[in-house]
Amino acid sequence: MSAHRDQDIDLCAGYALGCLDTADRERVEEHLASGCPMCQAALAEFSDASVLLAASAPLAQPGPALRQRVLAAVAAPGIREPEPPAEQVREPVDTRGRVIELRPRRAPFFTAGWGWAAAAALLALVTALEWTQAARLRGELESNRLRLADLERRLADESRWSEVLNAPAAKVVYLAPTGKGSSELRARATYDPVSRRAVVVFENVRAPQGSDYQLWAIVGGAPASLGVVKADAAGHAMMRLENLGEPKLLAAFAISLEPAGGSPNPNAPSGPVVMLGKLEG
């Protein structure tokens, strides 16, 4: 085994990326061929990383015809003939200075051996392949159309909600703890009086066992339930609220601590109000 040097690891990285200069490439190929386990392992890692780099190329796709071209080409007779060893590939020059052809010239595809019957059979096969391919593509097209419609719908929805956050008239209300509950719960409401929508973001939502937090709007002096706060494992939650009614009547947002599932009374909290945020103006 050729002795391992630290620089060989650098060379393995360049080798995986396919960018070594000739002398370095020869050195590392010889070294790898000698079976250095450290470099074999490093090369496998670097080559995985080069796959990741490749995946950074902007998305693009070939035309559907390429698939057929490739498959037709591999199906062509004679394509699997073993290639001559590398040294024979270099074209030697004979004494008269002409290129010698090493391989016998392959018979053209349609010669006497391939009659019209064979040609017709081939045509039928190609037609069948095309039909199958077309059916597959139609199926793909339909499913893609559905996916696209779904994505567009979701995108429109997202941008509609992001409008709330960017609305010039939007008011941001930080709800403050009332002292009757958790001091680590955080909630922020962004309310757009023009569209009458609000986005409320919660952090550190960790209701005691068997209980839930519930969000309320105080409208015209009376509480109206906006729903139970459902947080993810990290304690984050977001609620998107449609049509909060007449802006002049909306006075505040409040959070109460309720039995699991929310207050039994839909028109009033049954537990303590733990946070409150008043809308100003």
Partner: peptide, 24 residues
């Protein structure tokens, strides 16, 4: 890409799993 797939077809035996994955 067509040339590449033809090369894969003809020279699949040159793949050495110790050097990296098929994807690579």
């Amino acid at each position: 890409l067509q040339e590449a797939w033809l090369q894969v077809w003809r020279r699949a035996v040159t793949y050495d799993p110790r050097r990296g994955t098929v994807a690579a």
